[in-house]
């Protein structure tokens, strides 16, 4: 092999030199500072007014684990309802029918325009407006019997979530080229079949990252249902500390469990993203 210098006698020959690895002094300084800060924080917590034994003890208390299960169930239930409503609202919003479009826009406006906690309280207190529910002459229930904390939380969180999810779904659908609808139509698909078979699977790539975000948000949003007596983990932790006054210990227990659930969700999202990245150039 001829070195460049051989053909360019005026340039120095560097073919025998080695490249010296770059030193990242800034990073080392940052690591040192952060280590000191974390150590100080850990010491503060260790010597502070926290009985760590209680944290360990209540981490697996029956009532806490039940609360955890209820938090997970409510997250899944409310997100499922939210996704179903979100898809329906997004499809209605994109429909050529102005009535459907208007209904979908009104839905998003109403539920995105009011605080979730207010919506939860409204659902829970529905009996004050409608003492009975049902179809007159066919069947009816006393609202207080139907609107349990779990049902009110599911409706409040799920319907509110649907209003946000519809926007995520719509963005996903808009991200798919119109040529895809046309190709689907040209092989005889109706609009809905084209959406289901061709558009949504492609929109997933755009939909999943924000939806994963909303899922994680929902894990924590379920804690709001404590105000309507739904026994999720925060509600149960509070009930325990009302009795034994170990406020901080029980809040730490709840915090640990929230972190655990969210940590499990993150790799699950990555797996889904990989699945829907099939055939795509980006995001794989």
């Amino acid at each position: 092999m001829t070195t460049p210098a051989a053909s360019h006698p005026s340039l120095p020959d560097i073919s025998g030199h080695t490249i010296v690895a770059e030193r990242y002094w800034g990073r080392w300084v940052a690591v040192a500072i952060i280590t000191v800060l974390i150590a100080a924080l850990a010491r503060a917590f260790a010597v502070g007014q926290i009985e760590w034994a209680f944290v360990g003890q209540f981490l697996t208390a029956k009532s806490i684990l039940e609360g955890l299960a209820n938090t997970i169930l409510m997250t899944i239930g409310a997100m499922t309802l939210g996704i179903v409503l979100g898809v329906v609202a997004a499809v209605m919003r994109m429909s050529p029918n102005p009535v459907l479009k208007g209904v979908a826009m009104g839905y998003a406006w109403l539920f995105r325009g009011t605080p979730v906690i207010l919506q939860l309280l409204l659902w829970f207190n529905l009996a004050l407006i409608f003492p009975t529910l049902g179809i007159p002459g066919l069947f009816s229930f006393r609202t207080v019997d139907v609107m349990t904390p779990a049902v009110a939380a599911l409706l409040g969180l799920g319907i509110n979530q649907g209003a946000y999810t519809s926007e995520v779904m719509r963005a996903g659908m808009l991200s798919v080229d119109v040529g895809q609808y046309e190709a689907a139509k040209s092989i005889g698909m109706t609009r809905l079949k084209a959406l289901r078979r061709i558009v949504f699977p492609q929109a997933m790539r755009v939909i999943i990252p924000p939806l994963g975000n909303e899922f994680i948000g929902m894990v924590k949003l379920t804690s709001l249902a404590s105000v309507i007596q739904y026994s999720e983990i925060l509600h149960n932790a509070q009930n325990i500390y009302y009795a034994n006054s170990r406020v901080i210990e029980l809040l730490i227990v709840a915090a640990i469990w929230y972190l655990v659930v969210v940590s499990v969700l993150t790799p699950a999202q990555m797996l889904l993203e990989r699945h829907y990245g099939r055939g795509g150039g980006v995001g794989r």
Partner: peptide, 14 residues
């Protein structure tokens, strides 16, 4: 009728 488009419009996820 079958239609062939200028920009192919194959379904990229399939």
């Amino acid at each position: 009728t079958g239609m062939v488009f200028q920009r192919f419009n194959l379904f990229p996820h399939l």
